[in-house]
Computed example of a mutant assay.
Amino acid sequence: MHDLVIFDCDGVLVDSEVLSNQVIVDNLAGYGVHLSLNECMSLFVGGTMTGVRDKARALGADLPDAWTDQIYAETYEVLRAGTPLIEGIPELLAQLDAQGIPYCVASNGRPEKMQITLGQNGLWDRFSKVMFSAYALGIGKPDPTMFLTAARHFDAKSPVVIEDSANGVTAAIRAEMRCLGYAAHDDGARLAALGAEVFSDMAQAPQLLGL
């Protein structure tokens, strides 16, 4: 039995990836870089916004220095309008609570963003004190530091990570942690190739976790 479940936030707890990436698609089009939503998600899901900026510049976008603040403001506005939970998350958290298994969130996103998405879904109080962010630690996935820091915080000997991005899976494998790869938008082959156990429905998670 695992003694800690580490959740990614965007795309695992909250269904925010499509919303956020559509904002990036629309924004970059204004700078002459035209991507489909699928192309955008393939390029950017699981990264930091600084990484998005650098990749977009490499693609030819002449982005201003204040672009990350600009895109965060645009993204927050969209997310505030409504960001649903991933189906099955409330039930999964209830089962973890019932069995006394601790859990936390570890994300490359800013805490402010998580407050918007988790807050509107009643999960902020559950996660606000067990939140590990690349912006607080100064280093993000695919580096394993965030996951290792979370495990040390809980003195966990058998943590498991639930991720939906290549960077997240890579970080978990580098931390020598079991990783469940949630693939809701494709076949999960990329995550599987990196070492994740792929699943497509959060209702499958309790069985995978041995609950």
Results as ranks from 00 to 15, higher is better:
L19T: 07
E39P: 03
P64E: 05
T68H: 07
F132H: 07
K157A: 15
S36P: 07
L43N: 11
Q99M: 08
T48P: 01
Y72C: 09
E77C: 13
T68P: 03
D10W: 03
I173Y: 01
G140K: 04
S165Q: 02
G140T: 05
D26P: 02
V33M: 01
L13G: 04
D65W: 02
V14M: 03
S42N: 15
A136L: 14
S107P: 12
F147S: 02
G140S: 14
N108A: 10
D143Y: 05
N21W: 01
T170N: 07
D125V: 04
A172N: 07
N38W: 07
G82I: 10
A156V: 05
L96E: 08
A73V: 12
R53C: 14
M177R: 00
H2V: 11
H185W: 05
Q70G: 09
F147R: 01
Y135Q: 14
G30N: 11
L13H: 08
G119Q: 06
L137A: 14
I162D: 13
C40G: 02
D186V: 01
F7H: 00
L93H: 04
M202T: 05
Y76C: 07
L180W: 13
S200K: 14
F147Q: 00
A66M: 12
E74N: 12
A192E: 07
V23D: 05
V23M: 06
A189P: 06
P90A: 07
A73F: 11
L63C: 04
A166E: 12
Q207F: 05
C40H: 01
I89P: 00
G168F: 04
L194R: 09
H2S: 13
S42R: 15
Y182N: 10
L92D: 01
G51M: 09
S16D: 04
L79T: 09
G109M: 02
M177D: 01
A73L: 12
I89V: 15
A196M: 09
I24K: 13
Q120D: 11
W124D: 06
V5L: 05
N121Q: 14
L63W: 03
D155W: 06
K129Y: 11
T83V: 12
H185D: 11
A172H: 07
V169Y: 00
A193N: 08
L13F: 10
S158V: 14
A136P: 04
A66S: 15
W67V: 04
A192T: 00
P90N: 06
L43K: 14
A192V: 01
P102L: 03
G88C: 13
R190S: 11
L35P: 00
L79V: 10
P206L: 08
S128Y: 08
E74C: 10
A151L: 04
G140A: 14
G140M: 05
D69C: 00
D26H: 08
